[in-house]
């Protein structure tokens, strides 16, 4: 009935070979070990690096590995590699569209650029809480907080 029907035929009967599946499992396991291992050695390895930079590196590594793992699962376990372009597009769609939500950082990132005339630091404290102004009265400003040493 569909115009695609004829050549879709080869896609849908594809049986992913046993060893391909095993290899994928191994890859996933190795990546899991790598990401855990990095998390353990990161505090040592990034000792001299400024915290913002270190956090960026950690984020990139952890999310990068997770991304590769997800792609492996989607492509091989879920068989998208052997499917039509339509399926590939839909497989990517959700993940791409999720990124649209990051537009809201244009809000969170710039809220405090606005200067409000007549606001002293105290009135700012009393104003409705914004996400980066913890609500508890009398709390010390966040930069002075002592964070327990994570590096043992």
């Amino acid at each position: 009935m569909s115009e695609h029907a004829s050549h879709a035929h080869d896609h849908s009967h594809h049986i992913t070979p046993f060893f391909t599946l095993v290899k994928t499992l191994m890859l996933l396991a190795v990546l899991m070990v790598v990401t855990i291992a990095w998390a353990q050695i990161a505090p040592e390895a990034l000792k001299g690096v400024p915290p913002a930079m270190a956090s960026l590196i950690n984020n990139l590594i952890a999310m990068g590995i997770a991304f590769v793992k997800a792609v492996a699962v989607i492509m091989i376990f879920m068989g998208v590699k052997y499917q039509s372009h339509v399926v590939k597009t839909y497989a990517a769609l959700g993940f791409v569209w999720f990124l649209m939500m990051f537009i809201m950082f244009a809000d969170y990132g710039t809220r405090h650029w606005e200067s409000v005339r007549g606001w002293t630091p105290e009135t700012k404290q009393m104003a409705l809480p914004r996400a980066d102004e913890p609500f508890e009265p009398g709390m010390p400003p966040r930069k002075d907080i002592h964070i327990p040493d994570q590096h043992h």
Binding site: M1, S2, A8, H9, H11, Y90, L93, G94, F98
Partner: peptide
């Protein structure tokens, strides 16, 4: 019409549903 069409349709439908799941956890 035929099995191939049926199978592809199901796969597309399922992936469309998974898109909603991605946004859900998103």
């Amino acid at each position: 019409e035929d099995l191939a069409q049926q199978q592809e349709t199901y796969v597309i439908g399922m992936w469309a549903f998974l898109v909603t799941e991605v946004m859900f956890f998103g």
